[in-house]
């Protein structure tokens, strides 16, 4: 073996490793340290104002009413949003996959389109579609005798409206993956079931869904991890309001870190969110394992 070959591998991975090491792995390690300091706007001015505070930031987070409010909002978004998104994805995938469907190519792209649109742009669009006085949604509902709803201005309605928006924006992603899962199920299984006289509903329950289990598990996990990182939607549509009803944990981290420059506290919030995300992922994986889906 020529000497060049042995080092070629390291030379090839060097640029990527340097970028990932310097701009991701190193900051992650530093974040652990940062979360144990009182890094604030004074430390930003001079590091001499920096003090080691142990676990104080973590205790402060757990004692902060606003953190629990934000966590509650985030969990609401995840617990309602993920099943809705996966359910819609499954329904849409079954429709597009159906032998009765026409123009499948068109529908597949049309239903997927929201995924590749810019989140900020479409959040702005939704804000106006759901506007109380001039919005199309209230106008259409008005035709059916429904009084105007203050979608983004009512503390009880703002989060459901954001969930509806996230559903619209994201179900296409899971749909594409579920579609690939559906295509992998052999036709013979359905033919055999039909010969046995099984109805479409029974074929769905006893063939499609069990075989699709692992796929649904994967997209469920990916969607959940993404939904825990709720930020841009409330940032654009509600600014966390009304009455903090759409303030998410990540939004709180952004506020603390980059509006108030409490970078130590913000790092602690980031780790606490990470732990909650891991715990929720673990729960879902355990539930899936019981069904043999993982």
């Amino acid at each position: 073996m020529r000497p060049g070959r042995r080092i070629a591998g390291w030379v090839f991975i060097a640029p990527a490793l340097i970028v990932i090491g310097v701009f991701f792995l190193l900051p992650v390690l530093l974040a652990v340290g940062l979360s144990l300091t009182d890094f604030d706007i004074y430390a930003l001015a001079s590091l001499r104002n920096l003090q080691f505070v142990g676990l104080d930031n973590y205790l402060a987070v757990l004692r902060m009413g606003l953190f629990w409010r934000a966590l509650g909002n985030t969990l609401y978004f995840v617990v309602v949003g993920v099943p809705l998104s996966i359910g819609a994805a499954l329904g849409a995938a079954l429709l597009v996959h159906s032998r009765l469907a026409r123009c499948r190519g068109f529908f597949r792209v049309a239903l997927f389109t929201p995924v590749v649109t810019n989140l900020i742009a479409v959040a702005v669009i939704w804000k106006y579609l759901f506007q109380t006085r001039y919005g199309i949604v209230n106008f259409v509902l008005g035709r059916f005798g429904v009084h105007p709803v203050d979608w983004l201005g009512d503390p009880h309605m703002a989060m459901p409206t954001i969930i509806l928006f996230a559903l619209w924006k994201n179900f296409g992603y899971a749909m594409i993956i579920v579609l690939a899962g559906l295509q992998a199920i052999p036709d013979e299984l359905y033919e055999a079931a039909r010969l046995d006289g099984a109805s479409a509903w029974r074929q769905l329950r006893h063939i499609t869904l069990p075989l699709l289990g692992p796929t649904l598990m994967t997209v469920g996990l990916l969607t959940m991890v993404g939904y825990f990182q709720l930020f841009a939607e409330p940032y654009v549509m509600t600014e966390g309001g009304p009455l903090q009803s759409t303030l998410s944990v990540l939004y709180l981290m952004y506020n603390q870190g980059f509006d108030w420059w409490n970078l130590g506290l913000a790092s602690a919030i980031a780790f606490v969110l990470f732990v909650f995300t891991l715990a929720a992922t673990g729960l879902l994986v355990r539930a899936g394992r019981r069904k043999g889906w993982v």
Partner: peptide, 8 residues
């Protein structure tokens, strides 16, 4: 998640 790294 990427936000862990954002402050540092």
């Amino acid at each position: 998640p990427s936000q862990v790294a954002m402050m540092p």
